[in-house]
Amino acid sequence: MIEIIVSLFILLGALFMLLGSVAIIRLPDTYTRVNAATKASTLGVIGTMVAVFLYFLFAKDILSGKILLTIIFVFMTAPISGLMIARSAFHNGVPFWDKNKHNDLKVHLEKKQKVNQNS
């Protein structure tokens, strides 16, 4: 019984990691790809780590805190790396996809520049 649950979680994690890698190829520009690259890990890592945790808990009778810490560490670092990649891409002028509709950040920066020039 426990094997079935563990393998379900492993498969789920692997599936989301696969979808993440497909997303890196298919999405159109850097900013959308950062999403795929940093966040394919979230559900993928949760799935795999929960499976490992359950396996050790029920099959080996070990409650392993290390595995839960892995989830927390991935969760702490993923958003920061995503923010830094997207931010540096924006400030280096990496182009957006041509179907991009809203760009409030660009509007904001242009407004700020105008204020700086006037003063």
Binding site: L43, F75, A78, P79, I80, H108
Partner: peptide, 27 residues
């Protein structure tokens, strides 16, 4: 910002200077 960053499809790209406005990128 971390919670937004961890949800797939959304990503905080920058903060305004007074840190009241987040610029969130949506797919």
């Amino acid at each position: 910002a971390s919670l937004i960053g961890l949800t797939p499809g959304t990503l905080v790209t920058a903060f305004s200077d007074d840190e009241t406005i987040m610029y969130v990128h949506h797919v």
